[in-house]
Design a binder for these strands. Structure first.
Length: 271
DNA sequence: AGCCAGGGACATT
DNA sequence: AATGTCCATGGC
């Protein structure tokens, strides 16, 4: 077993080869996390979890173990997935980010976060997202504000979004929030990739890349690979066949995630 | 100072 | 269907 649920608020992680909190949190899936004395604090929607070491054991203390068992995808064995991703050009990235897991984050939070992410940089839009949460989201027991509920989001005006630095994406967000009211996550979950993508692309401000992020990070469609400017540059030097082996297949989304984290890691090393 | 950022809407061809 | 242009704004 990857983890053991000790009680209602505690998960013990046994296999650290497939759980690297730093890599997971810095792989561009989610943006509401903070470093603490012992490790990391993560918020997803209105849920929180603290990941840290207690007497040499990796422990997750959280408000809801069932929620975070699903969030961290602990039912999936990533060792087997990694064995299936025996693509030569992927091995460096796989060694670097071997502890990455694909999270199952909140639908509304992912949609709005990635609309804000468009043609933006991670540092900047993380600030924007957190500022919106601090203004409109409820305070929680962990000391951080929740991501605003859809009802709370619906109170935010275009001018408000602009004040938080959303720029030209402000009107996208206002309309997208109204459209989200008409969608039901549980119903969308039943759709196949093609149908789901078609619906997501109707959301104002959502194009092919953001739709792919929503499908991978909120709907856990592991075969969907978002292609952003970083990934584009990385695969440009590969042959069509190599590109195909990475961006297609049942775990294309995970392969892409290893590459994205690897690029970010190298970028930081250079600086 | 100028390029870039986990792109997308919209017009033009 | 494919391509081109414009977009707010801070990080670097």
């Amino acid at each position: 077993m990857i983890v053991k649920i000790l009680n209602q608020n505690t998960i013990q992680v046994n296999d650290l080869n497939q759980f690297d909190p730093y890599a997971i949190l810095h792989s561009g899936q989610v943006f509401r996390y903070w470093q603490t004395e012992r490790g990391w604090l993560v918020m997803s929607g209105n849920h929180w979890a603290e990941i840290g070491l207690n007497s040499n054991q990796m422990i997750i203390k959280c408000d809801d173990t069932q929620y975070f068992y699903r969030y961290f995808d602990f039912a999936t064995d990533y060792q087997i997935i990694k064995q299936n991703l025996n693509i030569p050009k992927l091995q460096n990235a796989l060694v670097c980010g071997g502890g990455i897991r694909i999270l199952q984050a909140e639908f509304v939070e992912i949609v709005l976060s990635f609309i804000i992410s468009a043609n933006n940089n991670i540092k900047r839009f993380t600030k924007t997202i957190n500022a919106i949460c601090e203004r409109y989201g409820d305070m929680t027991a962990c000391g951080q504000h929740a991501f605003p509920s859809l009802e709370q989001c619906a109170m935010i005006t275009e001018e408000d979004f602009k004040q938080f630095g959303c720029g030209y994406r402000a009107p996208y967000l206002v309309k997208a929030i109204q459209q989200l009211k008409q969608l039901d996550f549980n119903q969308l979950q039943k759709l196949d990739n093609h149908e789901l993508q078609r619906i997501l692309l109707e959301i104002y401000g959502v194009g092919p890349k953001v739709a792919a992020c929503i499908m991978l990070f909120a709907f856990h469609r592991l075969d969907v690979a978002p292609v952003d400017t970083w990934i584009k540059k990385a695969i440009a030097q590969l042959s069509p066949k190599e590109q195909n082996s990475i961006l297609c297949g049942p775990y294309a989304g995970i392969a892409q995630q290893y590459i994205f984290y690897y690029l970010q890691h190298l970028h930081k090393e250079v600086l």
